[in-house]
Design a protein around this nucleic acid. Structure first.
Lengths: 156, 156
DNA sequence: TTGCTCCTCACGTCACGTGAGGTGGC
DNA sequence: TTGCTCCTCACGTCACGTGAGGTGGC
């Protein structure tokens, strides 16, 4: 059922995807084991072949993992929601039921808003941390100046 | 040798420190095992007693771990450098050799600057990610509007 | 044919989580 | 004395790292 044409060709080897995403091949196989990203195809000999879309998924997973700090189980839920949204896009072009469209977009908005809130908090926390480091840098420079001014020790 | 007076009293139980730092008691014992933070004292019965300073160390470790993404081995190096700087402060007040002071401050500045650079990069990356999420949020809202405008399906 | 990359086990590691079984402190 | 918290093993888990030993593709 539906069009079986492969729009996004699977031509990247696992090592190429690993390098592009900054992960190990072991990591990609582990993600596949967990059902997070599977190669869109295989070579006749059984080697994994990834598509451009597969690589994008891996990059997305890394962002959620390293920048937001989700574990792979939470990430699985999020990317599943986003995959549903991709389905929606096809349905939308094919003129699916507007009722269902509304539902799916509402769901996507909810996922995205929750994510935004968490990332905003993270940005704020790490921004505060950076300010502390900057303040420290200023203080250190002042200490250096003080040492230079009285080279023979401290005047009580 | 030196003053043996405990300036910073060790009066917090492990559970209190754990709660205040948002970690488990297991985590605190693990940090101790690695030589990252040890309780400043013990009860007669052998229970750990932490000082205000110990808690600050734990919070510091968490920042470096969660916000910057260092592993515990890297963190050990950093906090060791900062501990040396605390030594410097005592030495400085006691009027130590200005030569040695200069060296230690220079070292502290280097550690701090490296840290700042990494955090800055992180801030920039996560900031970009947040912008993407914001853009997505706008797009989703536009899609909702479009659906509302043509409730009978898509024209063409 | 020679390298290089790929494959599947499978054990190791880091940063803890989670009981098991027992003792301490207001 | 009753809870609650603490103690030390010690095995489990998550997200991979790291070979072992063998096959595939330009």
């Amino acid at each position: 059922m539906g069009a079986g044409v492969t729009i996004d060709e699977a031509r990247y080897r696992i090592g190429e995807v690993a390098k592009a995403a900054g992960v190990s091949t072991r990591t990609l196989r582990y993600y596949e084991e967990l059902g997070l990203v599977s190669p869109s195809g295989h070579s006749p000999g059984g080697a994994r072949r990834y598509s451009e879309n597969d690589l994008a998924r891996v990059l997305r997973i890394r962002e959620l993992q390293q920048l937001v700090g989700f574990n792979l189980d939470e990430i699985k839920t999020i990317v599943a929601g986003e995959a549903r949204l991709d389905e929606l896009r096809s349905e939308f072009r094919d003129g699916g039921s507007p009722q269902r469209e509304r539902e799916l977009v509402a769901e996507a908005i909810e996922i995205n808003d929750r994510l935004r809130e968490q990332v905003r908090q993270k940005v704020s926390r790490i921004g505060g941390f950076l300010e502390e480091l900057d303040a420290k840098a200023v203080r250190y420079r002042q200490i250096v100046e003080e040492i230079e001014k009285c080279p023979a020790g401290r005047p009580e």
